[in-house]
């Protein structure tokens, strides 16, 4: 048996692009400095991920999602908190934002619910196409066990419900933008609201559509694959973290919600002494 690695040792074959030092840059077969120069950053992001030059409406939609829904200036939110903690601990903003983006791949908020909601919409639509009733499909999802081995798992219905409050204040402004752009009646958006309506009618009063669910629906209606939706959202919360990092850096060091020793509620083993022959 031969190693498969030798063939890759000196060459990386790709259609993504390359930089020709001192000369030019190619991204997905187009010259950055001539053909892509007028794209906005969000437009470049969509092009770099999908390979398609987006129209202005698609750019405005993704830009609106980023602006309205993903970069709150609140350092209490878990991923933003990393920015604020980096600032107050006098680390760098880049480190704080980088780590903040990393923790955004969370279960109760952020990227996993967006991806989970995308898949949920695909699964539910498949069931409905097979003739199932929406209420039955939802009930079956909610009945599935979602806890094994104490592992943290996505909610049974990602995109619905919220950890801090039940109503998501981002739905209305994002839907106003969707209306303006003509995306409010897309099939995935309609399905998302139908799921919400069915949940509320069945007495699950806290399971309102949340912004992850609406983002997934809007992006699905744009024709992005689940993987592309995830990729389009990887950086979307970076603004909030950066604002929080800069704000905390401008305040006295170590003042961001300091905690006193008594705030640690210990519920472990009683006081004991290490025996040197213990090991």
């Amino acid at each position: 048996m031969k190693t498969p690695l030798a063939a890759w040792e000196n060459t990386w074959t790709t259609r993504l692009g390359a930089y020709f030092p001192g000369e030019r840059v190619v991204l997905r077969g187009r010259d950055l400095f001539t053909e892509l120069k007028d794209l906005s950053w969000i437009g470049l992001l969509i092009y770099g991920i999908t390979g398609n030059i987006p129209d202005q409406k698609s750019v405005r939609l993704l830009n609106g999602i980023w602006t309205l829904a993903t970069s709150y200036p609140d350092p209490r939110i878990w991923n933003n908190r990393i920015g604020a903690l980096a600032g107050t601990a006098r680390s760098t903003a880049t480190l704080g934002v980088s780590a903040g983006i990393a923790i955004t791949e969370a279960v109760v908020y952020g990227l996993q619910p967006v991806l989970g909601a995308t898949q949920l919409l695909i699964d539910v639509r498949e069931r409905l196409d097979r003739g199932d009733e929406l209420a039955d499909v939802i009930a079956r999802r909610l009945e599935q066990p979602c806890d094994d081995n104490n592992q943290r798992r996505l909610a049974a219905l990602p995109g619905f419900g919220r950890p801090v409050s039940s109503r998501d204040e981002r739905i209305a402004p994002l839907m106003r933008l969707a209306e303006e752009l003509g995306f409010a009646q897309g099939s995935s958006v309609s399905l998302a609201f139908k799921i919400e309506e069915t949940l509320l009618q069945s007495g699950r009063s806290k399971l309102y559509l949340n912004v992850a669910g609406l983002m997934a629906a809007l992006l699905s209606d744009q024709g992005y694959t689940p993987a592309q939706q995830y990729q389009l959202c990887v950086l979307c919360s970076s603004g909030g973290m950066l604002f929080c990092a800069a704000d905390a850096a401008a305040q006295p060091q170590g003042r961001f919600f300091p905690m006193r020793c008594s705030s640690i509620k210990y519920r472990g083993k009683a006081s004991r002494q290490w025996k040197t022959d213990e090991t």
Partner: peptide, 27 residues
């Protein structure tokens, strides 16, 4: 506000509730 821990406990210095005088790990 509080943090829960099953393995870490701190006692404060007399002059500063934000500085630990003793830290216990699993007792």
């Amino acid at each position: 506000e509080s943090i829960e821990s099953a393995f870490w406990q701190e006692y404060a210095e007399a002059d500063n509730p934000f500085a630990a005088t003793k830290c216990r790990c699993a007792g």
